[in-house]
Each structure stands twice: as structure tokens, then as C-alpha cells.
Amino acid sequence: MPRPTLTPEETALLVRLRQPHSLPMFELGYLVPSGLLIGFGFLRGEPAAFAAAFAVIATFSLWSLRAQSAGLALLRTILQKYETALDQAPPPRADG
């Protein structure tokens, strides 16, 4: 099978997917401050702290969904390239 030509973005996505998962620093980066805002809201009875925590969580959740959607589109193009390469590959020979 001929190896498909991948763009730098596609190669970067494959490299990222092959790496073992580590501590989710991205999630901790917005969940910890949001948790602190919620705790502050409980202690002080501040509804603005709850609203700020919700805004932080909503913003990062929407950003994450958008990034995942873009990643899936890129992964779809990678799979299409490999399917095309498989279709162009010569059939296996029957030796014997």
C-alpha cells in the first residue's frame, strides 16, 4: 500500500493521538479556578461568583467541543486518504 501524503496538521494530530494520556492539565486549568469561585460563592453568598464559575466552565466546554469537532474533521480526512491508498494497492498475490 502506498503511504498517503499527510499535511503537517494531520501528522501532528496522529502524533498527539499516539501519545499516552497524562494528567489532564487542560481540565484542571479551568476546573480548579471554577471550584474556587464556587467555594467563594458559598462562603460569601455571592451569586456573581457562581455566575463567573459557570461562565468559565461554559467557555472552556464550548472551546473544547469546537476543538474536538475540528480534530474529528481532520481525522476524517486522514482516514479517507488511507482508504484511498488501500483501494489503489495491488491485490495480494496467491503464492502456491
Results as ranks from 00 to 15, higher is better:
12 A>I: 03
72 L>E: 09
40 F>K: 06
37 L>V: 03
68 Q>S: 04
7 T>V: 03
24 P>M: 11
26 F>D: 06
81 K>R: 13
82 Y>V: 08
61 S>D: 07
72 L>A: 15
54 F>W: 13
22 S>V: 04
20 P>W: 01
71 G>W: 00
64 S>K: 12
74 L>I: 04
76 R>E: 13
70 A>T: 05
62 L>C: 07
89 A>L: 01
50 F>R: 02
86 L>N: 07
38 I>Y: 04
32 V>Q: 14
10 E>H: 08
1 M>D: 03
55 A>R: 12
37 L>A: 00
12 A>V: 02
93 R>S: 09
72 L>K: 15
41 G>N: 05
61 S>Q: 09
56 V>K: 08
73 A>T: 08
55 A>P: 00
9 E>R: 14
73 A>V: 09
67 A>L: 06
30 Y>F: 15
3 R>P: 01
58 A>P: 02
7 T>A: 13
16 R>S: 12
92 P>I: 03
67 A>H: 07
95 D>E: 14
50 F>A: 02
14 L>I: 07
86 L>A: 11
25 M>C: 13
95 D>C: 12
79 L>Y: 08
45 G>T: 10
94 A>W: 13
13 L>D: 00
91 P>N: 08
47 P>T: 09
77 T>D: 15
43 L>D: 03
67 A>Q: 12
63 W>H: 04
60 F>P: 00
57 I>G: 03
36 L>C: 11
9 E>S: 15
